[in-house]
Each structure stands twice: as structure tokens, then as C-alpha cells.
Nucleic acid binder design. Structure first.
Length: 653
DNA sequence: TCACGGAATATTTTT
DNA sequence: TATTCCGTGA
């Protein structure tokens, strides 16, 4: 009855050779299927591999794919894993239920919204929409908001969101994070109440609501909770360190009927605390699930030893660490480099130079990435890359779906799906000449009174002056109302209406028009308008489309520019981390707060652990900071004072 | 009531 | 530097 004796049998039973493909810890995580399990997966330790094989294993054992739930951080992550599992085994794996907490919550709420007293034809507000709504309310608020220092709509939305995600009162958020707004506490509280009310009136759910209301549904309706729970026999959660308290609560409820739940994460890679994520969820997990089996993956398959030596030093500087030391069997490799440039442009030139060298010596461009703290940090580099005709793709930062022209077009579709969507109506109406907030409000109220959905715009009575201005818009909606149209047919009609508006409003309309063509292509993949709008909000295309080289490059062999947040989970042959400058990374704003500083450190750790073979840090000298009036010239404290035998120093220019 | 211009303000990361 | 906000003239 030894293991070896059983091996031939096992091999006959499973088409996949798990013994060969996985190391002992991974294998254990993959093959022990029942009961709660916590997998602590160090950077590059084969976490994705483990999850992929586990999905395949479950399916191979005959578990129905629909009864398996894989919750991930992005939609892309789950579809990639399922695709890989399908390649290992067969296409059944693609039918596994997968998605983000937000998208899963959304699909459940669409089914069960009525139990909470909501209509399921709600609109999901993205960040910009939520801010617009807050902005409207802010204007309506009489006494408070006329003070100069009253918080902006964006700040207000942040405050509300933080309170929800951390499950603390708004008072605490103000007290801890925004003490300078304490004089306005009462107004802010009133605004938050009003915000909540308006969301209900206009059938809006913001990102947080999806989690909050789904959690509420599970908590208050045991029958539904048990039904959902028993429909998912096996649950896996990726990136557990970046879940927040509500998500942990949702997960707990989902296991009411069985405890076959595996969470995977790495406390050292928790980088979403700003959004309410709490890596302590990892520590709490075994307490929540008493029989938890804990497995650590510590063998690193990604990086060469010199890189690991450095990343171990970085994470050792964390105050709160659950010590684990990664090791690798990869031999050789060169020391990471810290390069000091005289200026920002010097930094860009250095990076471009090195990339050209590497590329000449056979490293493909798509195996190289440049990572940075914030989207705008790459502006200078982008110019330099364009000059050298190096094709690149930029990930993270501003989003395709957040640009004004895309939102304009989407607004026309959103009022069809949800005629109560006041934000979209305003957006549509304000595009018209001579229509401002006041007129928009009048028209909106008139449409709302008609109670005939978006078609209300066709029958409303208005002063003739306004009515004439509306005629083209009315024509648009009557065309749409004429018959059942596919999503892309609606898109085409709207585009026909909108393109003249676009030409009027933007100097760079040709470029924007191309984006809209792109949008039309995406629409063709959908036959449900709701689904299209949901995906545009919950799983928008991640890459910013503006790069001139983005579309023109024939193959996919492009250099990757990415924010560190968007680089999570990925790896490259060579990684450049630019702006490793104290004051920028960590940013000035994090210096006063121990927790923020720790998060910045982990962010640096995440960035550095993306590298397989080569790792470069760069920072420019004499950078003037407008905010503080200071001059930055020191390397990031996270990589400063590291001996030369671990981190080599260069001076360029 | 709208459009425009000047002044004030400001962090960044994403679902 | 870019956005947002407010006052002013039409």
C-alpha cells in the first residue's frame, strides 16, 4: 500500500501526470480537494500553475464544471487559467464558473435583486459616474459646499468608498485620513445619505454596492444563501491578500453548505489596501475555517538567484512580515542594477539604450517590461520610445472606457437599458448646444414623467426653442425605437448621430473616431445590451488605446509599459523599474503613515519579483517636487544602502 | 441660463 | 500640468 505501488493505478485513472508536473507542495494543494485550505504562495512559486491543475483535477474527477467556482482578481486572470486548464485536460474546464467578486456578485444580484426590493435592471456606476452623481448632489447642497476648501466630488467619492470597503463609519474616515475636513463633517454625512438615496431612485449600483448588497442578500436570506452555496461544491479564490472584509464575508457565506474552499495568496504582495483590502484576511482564514490545511509554496521558478537575493532584502525591510524565504534552483544570472541618471530624460535614454541592446542580443521586446508607480511616470519614456520607433503597449493608468468620447456613446445605450439613468441623460443632453445643467434637468424630469422609458423623449412637451434643438436626438431615439436591433446596430445608429458632435468638440477627433470604431467591433460580440454595458463597466479593456504604435504594430512583439498594480501576477525576462526615487516611490504622501509606507514597500517587492533574468532600477537626480517644494535626489529607501555585491550601482550621463 | 475665462487646487494604484 | 470650480458678461 505504498504510494509507489499505487502510482500505476493513478496514472491510468488520470490523463494528466500530476506527479511529474508539480512539486510536492503544489501536488498536495492540487490533490487534496475536500475541506478548507490556505495556500501561501510566494512570488513566482507556481501559484497559477497550481490553480490551473487543480481545476483540471476537479473536472477530471468528474465534478461538474458548473459546480466549481474560481474567483480571481480580474476576468482576464480567470479566463487564462481556465484556458490553460482546458489545454491540460479538455474543453469542459472552460465551463467552470469564473470571474471577479464584483462580476459574480453582479450576476447573482441580477437574479435575486427583487428579494432585496430592487429592480434588476440597474446600471452599474463606474468611478467617473459615481463622482458625477456626487458632484450633482454637492451642487445641490446649499450652505456647505460654497466654502473654498469643501472637498471635491472625487474626494467625497473616495471618502464614501473607503468607509464602505473598510466597514467603518464615515466619521472615522474623516478623523483618520481627512482631518482637515472635520468642520464639514455634518455636510459630508448628509451628502452620503443623499448619495445612497439617489442611487436607489435612479437604479444605480456602484462598485461597492455590488459587494455590499450581495453580502446582505446572503446574510439575510438563508434560503438563498444555502441554495447558492450548494450549487458550488468547490470554491477557489486567487489573490486572497487583496480581498476586503466584505469579500471575506461573502466567501464565508458561500461556504454555508460545504467547506471545500481554497484560498491562495501572499501577504507580502498585498497592494490594494487603499481600496480597503486587508491582507489580514489571510491570517483570519484558519480561524474562520478551523480545519484549514495550510500549504506554503516557497520554491521560486521565476527568478535567478541574484534577483531573489535582492527581493529577499527588500521584503525583509517590512515591519510586518510572515517570514518566508524563497529559494530557487535556477543558477547563474546577473546582479540587479541601480542606475542613477542626471535627469528624467537621461533615465528614459538609459532605458531605451538598454532595451535596444537586449533586443539586439535576442531578447524579444514582449519579454521586456518597464514598470512604474503611476501612469504618468512613463510620459517622457513614451516620447523617447516613439522617437526610436520601438513599439510598445501601455497597460494600466487611464482606461479606454473612461475617456469622454467612449462614455458619451455608452451613455446613449445606457438610457435605453435604464431610462432612470439620470447621469447618462445629463451626459447626452449636455452635448447639445445651449443646453446646460438647468435645461438638462428640465428635460430629464419631463422624460421621467412620461413613464415610457427612453422613448419618453419622443413625446415630451417642451418650449419650442428647446424642442427644436432636441429634434436630431429625438430622431435618433425614434430610429432605435423603430424595431428590435442588435447591440452593434444600435451602436452604428448612435455613432452616426454622434460623429458630428465629436468633430465639433474635439480637435483630435480622428483618433477618437478610431476608438469608437474599436468599440463597435467589441459590440459585435454581444447579443445582450445589458451584458455589454456590464462588461464595459466591470471588465473593461485594460489597455489604454492611445498609443500610436498600439494598433500599427503587426505582431504582438511589443515592449510592455505597465503600472505595478497592473503587472501583478505577470513576469518578464527583463524588468525596468523607473522612478525608483525617494519621494516618488515611496510617494511623499505615504511618508507620514506607517501602513501606507509598508504598502509602498510591498509594491516595490511586487515590481522586483516580476523579473526572471535582468532587473534594473533607475532614478533621476534633482527632481523638483511642486507639492512640497523639495528636491529629490535619493534612491528609493526600499533599495538604498544595499551592498554592491547584491545591487550594482551605475551612473549614467 | 449658458458659455467662457481666470483662479484655485492637487496622489497614486483598480473593481 | 490638468482639471475643477466660481464669477461674470451675454
Amino acid at each position: 500500500m505504498t504510494e509507489q505501488f499505487n502510482l500505476p493505478n493513478q496514472k491510468d485513472k488520470f490523463t494528466i501526470n500530476y506527479e511529474e508536473a508539480l512539486n510536492p507542495s503544489q501536488r498536495e494543494a492540487v490533490t487534496s480537494l475536500d475541506g478548507p485550505m490556505l495556500v501561501i504562495a510566494g512570488a513566482g512559486s507556481g501559484k497559477t500553475r497550481t490553480l490551473t491543475y487543480r481545476v483540471a483535477r476537479l473536472v477530471e474527477k468528474g465534478i461538474s464544471p458548473a459546480k466549481i467556482l474560481l474567483l480571481t482578481f480580474t476576468r482576464k486572470a480567470s479566463s487564462e487559467m481556465l484556458n490553460r486548464a482546458a489545454k491540460l485536460l479538455d474543453s469542459r474546464c472552460e465551463r467552470v464558473s469564473g470571474g471577479t467578486f464584483h462580476s459574480f456578485s453582479n450576476s447573482m444580484l441580477r437574479k435575486h435583486a427583487s428579494i432585496l426590493g430592487f429592480d434588476n435592471k440597474y446600471t452599474i456606476l463606474d468611478r467617473v459616474d459615481a463622482e458625477s452623481l456626487v458632484g450633482m448632489l454637492r451642487k445641490e447642497l446649499e450652505p456647505g459646499s460654497k466654502h473654498r476648501s469643501f472637498p471635491r466630488k472625487r474626494t467625497l467619492a473616495n471618502i464614501f468608498g473607503r468607509a464602505v470597503n473598510k466597514v467603518i463609519p464615515i466619521e472615522d474616515v474623516i478623523y483618520n485620513d481627512y482631518p482637515h475636513f472635520q468642520p464639514y463633517l455634518e455636510d459630508i454625512l448628509n451628502l452620503s445619505v443623499e448619495y445612497k438615496k439617489r442611487k436607489v431612485i435612479h437604479k444605480f449600483f456602484d462598485y461597492d454596492d455590488l459587494l455590499v448588497y450581495f453580502h446582505l442578500l446572503l446574510k439575510n436570506h438563508a434560503d438563498i444563501r444555502d441554495k447558492i452555496s450548494s450549487s458550488y461544491k468547490y470554491i477557489m479564490v486567487d489573490e486572497y491578500q487583496d480581498t476586503n472584509q466584505i469579500q471575506a464575508g461573502i466567501l464565508y457565506s458561500l461556504t454555508s453548505k460545504n467547506k471545500n474552499v481554497m484560498v491562495v495568496g501572499d501577504d507580502s504582495q498585498s497592494i490594494y489596501a487603499f481600496r480597503g483590502a486587508n491582507f489580514k484576511n489571510i491570517i483570519d482564514f484558519p480561524r474562520l475555517f478551523p480545519e484549514t490545511k495550510i500549504i506554503s509554496l516557497e520554491e521560486n521558478y521565476r527568478s535567478v538567484q541574484p534577483i531573489l537575493d535582492l527581493t529577499n532584502v527588500i521584503i525583509d525591510r517590512a515591519a510586518e512580515k510572515f517570514s518566508k524565504k524563497l529559494f530557487t534552483r535556477k543558477t547563474g544570472g546577473v546582479k540587479p542594477v541601480l542606475a542613477n541618471a542626471q535627469s528624467e530624460n537621461g533615465q528614459s535614454m538609459f532605458v531605451v539604450d538598454k532595451i535596444q541592446d537586449l533586443n539586439a542580443s535576442g531578447v524579444p521586446l514582449n519579454r521586456i517590461a518597464v514598470l512604474f508607480r503611476a501612469g504618468f511616470h512613463s510620459f517622457d519614456l513614451e516620447l523617447e520610445l516613439a522617437r526610436e520607433r520601438l513599439p510598445f503597449i501601455k497597460v494600466g493608468g487611464f482606461k479606454f472606457t473612461e475617456s469622454a468620447h467612449i462614455k458619451d456613446v455608452l451613455a446613449h445605450l445606457k438610457v435605453i437599458a435604464n431610462p432612470h439613468d439620470r447621469i447618462s441623460w445629463y451626459r447626452i443632453l449636455l452635448l447639445l448646444e445651449k443646453v446646460g445643467p438647468k435645461t438638462a434637468q428640465n428635460i430629464y424630469e419631463a422624460i421621467d414623467k412620461e413613464k415610457s422609458g427612453y422613448a419618453g423623449i419622443l413625446t415630451i412637451e417642451l418650449k419650442s426653442g428647446i424642442s427644436r434643438r432636441l429634434s436630431r436626438l429625438k430622431q435618433l431615439f425614434s430610429n432605435i425605437d423603430f424595431g428590435p436591433l442588435s447591440v452593434s446596430e444600435m451602436g452604428e445608429i448612435i455613432l452616426h448621430y454622434y460623429l458630428p458632435v465629436l468633430r465639433d468638440r474635439y480637435d483630435d477627433h480622428p483618433k477618437r473616431a478610431r476608438d469608437l470604431e474599436q468599440l463597435l467591433t467589441i459590440m459585435q460580440r454581444y447579443n445582450s445590451l445589458e451584458q455589454f454595458l456590464t462588461d464595459m463597466t466591470l471588465e473593461p479593456p485594460n489597455t489604454s488605446m492611445d498609443g500610436t504604435f498600439a494598433e500599427t504594430s503587426p505582431d504582438n512583439n511589443r515592449l510592455v509599459l505597465s503600472t505595478i498594480h497592473s503587472a501583478k501576477g505577470l513576469e518578464w525576462h527583463t524588468v525596468f523599474i523607473i522612478w525608483a526615487l525617494d519621494g516618488r516611490f515611496p510617494s511623499m504622501h505615504a511618508l507620514n503613515n506607517e501602513e501606507d509606507l509598508e504598502e509602498e514597500l510591498r509594491l516595490m517587492y511586487v515590481a522586483a519579483t516580476r523579473a526572471q533574468n535582468n532587473l534594473f532600477f533607475t532614478y533621476p537626480n534633482n527632481v523638483y517636487d511642486r507639492g512640497s517644494g523639495m528636491i529629490f535626489s535619493m534612491p528609493s529607501r526600499f533599495i538604498d544602502m544595499i551592498p554592491d555585491d547584491i545591487l550594482e550601482k551605475y551612473y549614467v550621463d
